[in-house]
């Protein structure tokens, strides 16, 4: 049981990683002058959209947290709308936090906001897919003994890796190397992306490694 779950997780994560790789390689075929560094904002949009779609599709296919109850259509719609609102709020929150951490307030608002959207895609969207718009469940998952399935563990790892990656991405900004990727917010968004990818890869491995220790409370 557990091994098949891990395999499913691994395949899902591999698909996510591939989708991110595709966002860097495919668009140049269609768009003139596209490069991740040169037209960074376009890449941010493409990456966010791509990761969103892939995540939603994966969620629909895999159904990691199957609910026992039958849910009416209206309920589903309200749930979806709630998710959208949550996502939007999380974008704004991330934007605020990034500004509080020292990002420019007025200049390059668009860049900062798109970076916030990217971060939300990597973190909040994942949570929304896995746990739904349920803050209490989120609070529970992100605590020491809160994980109830390997999907929760994977969620913890990818979210933390994304945020830590974005945090480390801020470090090269002050350096005087005059590289194109030092411009705000390229290093941070690249850091977040690398962190996310690393998290996706690490999560199944880590779970596999610790599969003996991992015991989950029943729902």
């Amino acid at each position: 049981m557990k091994d098949t779950e891990i395999k499913r997780l691994l395949s899902a994560n591999v698909v996510s990683v591939l989708s991110i790789i595709l966002t860097t390689t495919v668009p140049p075929l269609f768009l003139e002058n596209f490069s991740v560094l040169g037209t960074h904002l376009i890449w941010l949009c493409i990456c966010s959209i791509c990761v969103t779609t892939v995540n939603i599709i994966l969620y629909i296919i895999l159904k990691p947290n199957p609910s026992s109850k039958r849910i009416s259509f209206a309920h589903k719609v309200t749930r979806f709308l709630k998710c959208c609102v949550f996502f939007f709020i999380s974008c704004i929150l991330f934007h605020g936090i990034i500004v509080l951490y020292g990002a420019p307030l007025i200049e390059s608002v668009l860049e900062t906001f798109l970076f916030a959207v990217l971060l939300s895609t990597f973190t909040t969207l994942h949570c929304l897919c896995m746990l739904g718009p349920n803050i209490q469940a989120w609070i529970r998952v992100f605590s020491k003994n809160g994980a109830m399935s390997i999907w929760d563990n994977s969620l913890q790892i990818t979210t933390m890796c994304s945020i830590v990656g974005a945090w480390f991405g801020a470090f090269p900004i002050p350096l005087d190397w005059d590289r194109p990727w030092q411009i705000w917010p390229i290093s941070c968004s690249l850091g977040a992306t690398f962190g996310y990818v690393a998290g996706l890869i690490i999560a199944p491995l880590w779970i596999y490694w610790n599969r003996k220790q991992l015991t989950y409370k029943s729902r």
């Binding site: 992100f142 605590s143 020491k144 003994n145």
Partner: peptide, 22 residues
């Protein structure tokens, strides 16, 4: 602190398992 569960209320409401409150 959050990770170690110090921020959440110790007695979680019974009706919703898997939920935690601040």
């Amino acid at each position: 602190l959050h990770w170690h569960g110090r921020l959440t209320a110790p007695e979680a409401p019974k009706q919703s398992p898997g939920a935690a409150f601040y």
